[in-house]
């Protein structure tokens, strides 16, 4: 009984764990390596190009110089201070934006009246380029942390709001009817039918929101910050240190990719049930 109950799981894994042939094992490691080929190749090329003297590398510093700058910043403790400042801002803004976007999106997805009341206003606000809020936020909330977090929250809010509302509106009526047949109450319907049904779209909305959060933290830190990766960018520009700028950009890329991956990792167990094109790795 237990053996046979495990059957689907073992079947599913059979192609990856059951002693794959050497070529398959190679392929498994080759896939991620394929993604590294282009950036590593370009970096190597530029390093050689500068080393061979075809370019002085002053405006576009070679990788070793960028690495040296990062190490220098890290040694003095500057780097962790800047990273901590930026990550804190993104975390606070992301948290606020996700909370507001989820609640309002869910409410206006579920209740038609609320949607008719709220959605036109939200859509109108969405049409405003978010950077346009900057002067107003500075006037209202001051030049320090509050205005920065608010700007990031605004950037995160819209994709999450839209994602949640759209996902709830597009939940299959047939599945909702199953809930009605089993006489689920309103809250039970939300918890047992609507939430699981919108989860895949919600994860996408979170990832888009996080991406915008990283985008907006730079804008926020351009306006009078004394620390943070955005400050490193501005500082590098004003003092003519391209290596510092590129170093900050690279760190942004690493942080953005890592946090995105964390969301993916945290939600993957909740989405194992999906029967989607992407699960099979897409088209070869």
């Amino acid at each position: 009984m237990t053996m046979s109950a495990e059957l689907p799981v073992t079947l599913e894994r059979a192609d990856t764990t059951a002693a794959p042939p050497p070529s398959a094992r190679l392929l498994r490691y080759a896939r991620p390596a394929l993604g590294l080929l282009l950036p590593v190749g370009l970096a190597l090329f530029w390093e050689l190009w500068v080393a061979l003297g075809y370019s002085n590398g002053r405006l576009v510093p070679p990788p070793t110089k960028i690495f040296a700058t990062v190490m220098e910043l890290a040694k003095s403790g500057e780097l962790s201070r800047h990273i901590a400042a930026t990550v804190t801002r993104v975390a606070a803004g992301f948290g606020l934006g996700v909370a507001a976007g989820t609640i309002l999106g869910a409410v206006s997805g579920y209740w038609g009246v609320v949607r008719q009341l709220l959605d036109p206003t939200v859509q109108a606000l969405r049409a405003i380029p978010s950077i346009a809020w900057v002067p107003l936020f500075i006037l209202w909330l001051g030049i320090f942390e509050t205005s920065k977090v608010a700007l990031i929250a605004v950037g995160v809010f819209f994709p999450v709001y839209l994602g949640v509302m759209g996902a709830i509106l597009s939940v299959d009526r047939k599945i909702v009817e199953v809930g009605r047949i089993f006489r689920l109450s309103g809250p039970a319907m939300i918890r047992r039918i609507l939430l699981p049904a919108v989860l895949p779209a919600y994860v996408v909305a979170l990832r888009v929101g996080l991406g915008l959060g990283w985008m907006f933290v730079v804008a926020a830190e351009f306006m009078g910050a004394s620390e943070g990766l955005g400050y490193l960018l501005i500082d590098g520009q004003q003092l003519g240190k391209p290596a510092q700028i590129v170093a900050a950009i690279v760190i942004f890329a690493i942080l953005g990719k890592t946090t995105d991956w964390l969301i993916e990792l945290a939600t993957a167990p909740l989405l194992r049930w999906q029967d989607a094109f992407g699960r099979q790795g897409g088209a070869a």
Binding site: K174, E177, V178, I181, F182, R183, P196, W273, D275
Partner: peptide
Amino acid sequence: PHAKIGIIFQEPRLLPWLSVADNIGF
């Protein structure tokens, strides 16, 4: 909908995020 009346539709309408056992126990 009434507790003593059940229905089976043309499509199975299983909840894709629940295992077969959890679907039956829904």
